[in-house]
Amino acid sequence: MARLLAERLDIPFSEADDLHPPANIAKMSAGIPLDDADRWPWLESIGRRLREGEAAGTGCVVACSALKRRYRDTLRTACPSAFFLHLTAERKVLEQRLGDRAGHFMPKTLLGSQLAALEPLQPDERGAALDVGPAPEVIAETAVALLPR
């Protein structure tokens, strides 16, 4: 979805999973959830990526699981103009999509820990929630319409 949005906006795309340090990948591959200490270096890398896009004047779309408010606050500190799109879905949809994903280090058994950690966007946060039920192209167009100008 994030890649489609970046293509639609004609701006750079980054997959935040590519920014995880090897220790995080090993931990998740073993089915062990990350804790906050594991996530801080990763969040700092994402923040740098966002800041670089802002400094370049292009912006960027980063696909990441900024599950908690404090994670998003860290990203906003790095890039105050960050806008968050929280894609929502029923658990069974998420499980199916994780099961269909090939070659990824995070097993679907970690979904429960991700959902337990999730703190939805609050009204004072720049962002919006979008259901992933419609076709990807419809979601991308809706996302574009929600972005600040």
Score class of each variant (00 low, 15 high):
Leu9Tyr: 02
Leu9Phe: 02
Leu9His: 04
Asp10Tyr: 12
Asp10Gly: 13
Asp10Asn: 14
Asp10Cys: 12
Asp10Lys: 15
Pro12Ala: 01
Phe13Arg: 05
Glu15His: 08
Glu15Ala: 06
Glu15Ile: 01
Ala16Leu: 12
Asp17Ile: 07
Asp17Trp: 04
Asp18Pro: 03
His20Pro: 01
His20Asp: 01
Ala23Trp: 00
Asn24Ser: 12
Ala26Arg: 06
Ala26Val: 02
Met28His: 00
Ser29Cys: 07
Ser29Lys: 15
Ala30Thr: 03
Ala30Arg: 08
Gly31Arg: 11
Gly31Tyr: 12
Asp36Thr: 02
Asp36Met: 05
Asp38Phe: 06
Arg39Thr: 05
Trp40Met: 11
Trp42Met: 13
Glu44Met: 11
Ser45Asn: 15
Ile46His: 10
Ile46Cys: 13
Ile46Glu: 11
Gly47Met: 10
Gly47Asp: 10
Arg49Leu: 15
Arg51Val: 09
Gly53Phe: 00
Glu54Leu: 08
Glu54Asp: 14
Glu54Pro: 04
Glu54His: 11
Ala55Ile: 09
Gly57Gln: 12
Gly57Val: 14
Gly57Cys: 13
Thr58Phe: 07
Cys60Met: 15
Val61Met: 04
Val61Gly: 01
Ser65Ile: 14
Ser65His: 10
Lys68Ile: 10
Lys68Gly: 11
Lys68Tyr: 11
Arg69Lys: 09
Arg69Thr: 08
Arg69Met: 03
Arg69Trp: 05
Arg69Asp: 08
Asp73His: 04
Asp73Tyr: 03
Asp73Trp: 04
Leu75Arg: 02
Thr77Trp: 10
Thr77Ala: 13
Ser81Thr: 11
Ser81Lys: 07
Ala82Met: 01
Ala82Ser: 04
Phe83Tyr: 13
Phe83Met: 03
Phe83Thr: 03
His86Tyr: 13
His86Asn: 09
Leu87Arg: 02
Thr88Phe: 00
Glu90Asp: 10
Glu90His: 09
Glu90Thr: 05
Arg91Leu: 11
Arg91Ile: 08
Val93Ser: 08
Glu95His: 07
Glu95Met: 12
Glu95Trp: 06
Glu95Leu: 14
Glu95Ser: 09
Gln96Thr: 11
Gly99Asp: 10
Arg101Leu: 10
Ala102Trp: 06
Gly103Ser: 06
His104Thr: 08
Phe105Met: 10
Met106Ala: 11
Lys108Asp: 08
Lys108Met: 13
Thr109Ile: 10
Leu110Lys: 00
Leu111Met: 13
Gly112Gln: 15
Gly112Lys: 15
Ser113Ala: 15
Gln114Phe: 08
Gln114Val: 09
Leu115Glu: 04
Leu115Asp: 01
Ala116Met: 13
Ala117Val: 12
Glu119Pro: 00
Glu119Trp: 00
Pro120Lys: 02
Gln122Cys: 12
Pro123Leu: 03
Pro123His: 01
